[in-house]
Design a protein around this nucleic acid. Structure first.
Lengths: 241, 241
DNA sequence: CGAGGTCTGTCCGTAATCGTACCGACGAGC
DNA sequence: GCTCGTCGGTACGATTACGGACAGACCTCG
């Protein structure tokens, strides 16, 4: 009754995938953390001291331009982890990585991650599989930004976010969404209002509630479904384990 | 006089970075290949049997959408390699990878790559560093597609390509460029003509000659310079080695 | 030399998005 | 209950890029 934390580790999909023994060993290296809104986990080119396995909330990889504009490159929720480059790269982050929706999770020192991965067990394997799914996600971000309308991208972002948050109520402002999508704040308003009139959403000050997921899916581009499928493939025999 | 191939391996920047001894050992596993225009190296989700180290020519990672449209995610020339996921991922490609400009290079079986990387020498290290530079490149593709005009992106693409090709004459059609950038063919014409009138370019049927690099750099976005710098950082002490 | 395919230039109307700006609405805190 | 900072709705012209279509230029090959 007192040892609740270890079982809860399964709230992160990557950790949940691990066999009990491996998870048990890892649990001593996983330190619970709260993910505070707007806190920076890594800067571009900066070191990755810890990797993060979210339980709730959302972490975004962002790329910032010289003129102050920025745009989201990828989203990380409880389906994944941040800081892949600590293991698979040179140990510095290729992105700015920021908490976009507050939550909690676990962190692990990068050197411990290395150690564990060097055992060449399931942990390394799952991280490498996640790497590919992450790469696919980023690839679709490229394509989506290049080929799709803001309305499609916005719908996709809301759906993705709801998947990770759980709740249909997303606490975020138009301003915030506009930064994620790299567009004007007013464009978000222009896009959300028709959706709201159509009954797909309800919005309040600082809040967007998703009412009709299938409707949003119809508006969003295939990128949503493709990326989702990709993460689904990560755990083919999870039920069997 | 007969053993020219091994020294020439240095025509690929990653291989060139390796100490002579390591390169010597690798050379037996590196098989010269020609990169034929439009040949497919990997399909999305497909296996990575070989990784490729180009000497000349250009390989593109592409993402294709269901409606037949596609867009370039990243470019690989003699500064890098294709097939990172063979080592750092699950062994399947997150992208379609296609030869966009014919050339030549070397390929290596993925299992040999694994073997060599498992020695934990410079080879693994340089590949992991390249991984981060590649990730940065992709991140800028996301940002560039989301935030910049086609004119900027087109200029950037031409500069990047010239860097990898060497020659100022690029053999490519408007149609081809339009696919890379994910825009209409006519948009390319609309963009190239003013540049040509401004003396930055000269174009022929199927050919674009770059006349004024600084001029193009001024038009292109910061993404060009940022990604270039990133690759420059890969080899900080190359001269010293 | 001629034919057919490919490549490029151009045009028109339209849709998407931007830049900028202003104002009202909301809500937390005094 | 008022104030002030934040947030959202709206408007306008300007710009970018699209979709679709057509014709001329160029090349290759027979």
């Amino acid at each position: 009754m007192n040892s609740l934390p270890p079982p809860l580790l399964s709230a992160n999909a990557l950790l949940a995938y691990l066999p009990a023994g491996e998870l048990q060993r890892l649990s001593t290296m996983l330190q619970p953390v709260t993910l505070e809104f707007k806190s920076t986990l890594y800067n571009v080119g900066g070191p990755i001291d810890y990797v993060y396995f979210p339980r709730s909330g959302i972490i975004s990889a962002m790329t910032a331009m010289g003129d102050g504009r920025a745009i989201e490159v990828a989203t990380i929720g409880n389906e994944g982890m941040s800081g892949l480059s600590a293991l698979l790269g040179g140990g510095t982050s290729p992105y700015d990585v920021i908490v976009q929706i507050a939550g909690s999770g676990w962190r692990m020192r990068s050197d411990h991650l290395q150690q564990e991965a060097d055992r060449n067990g399931d942990f390394r394997k799952i991280i490498m599989l996640y790497h590919d799914a992450f790469a696919v996600q980023v690839a679709y971000s490229v394509a989506c930004n290049g080929l799709h309308t803001v309305e499609m991208r916005c719908s996709r972002w809301l759906l993705m976010t709801q998947d990770r948050i759980g709740s249909p109520e997303l606490n975020l402002t138009h301003e915030f969404l506009s930064v994620m999508l790299g567009v004007r704040r007013a464009t978000i308003t222009d896009i959300l209002n028709p959706l709201q009139r159509g009954g797909l959403l309800r919005t309040h000050r600082g809040m967007i509630e998703i009412l009709d997921r299938p409707g949003l899916e119809a508006i969003s581009c295939e990128c949503y479904e493709m990326v989702k499928q990709q993460f689904g493939k990560l755990f083919p025999h999870r039920a069997a384990a």
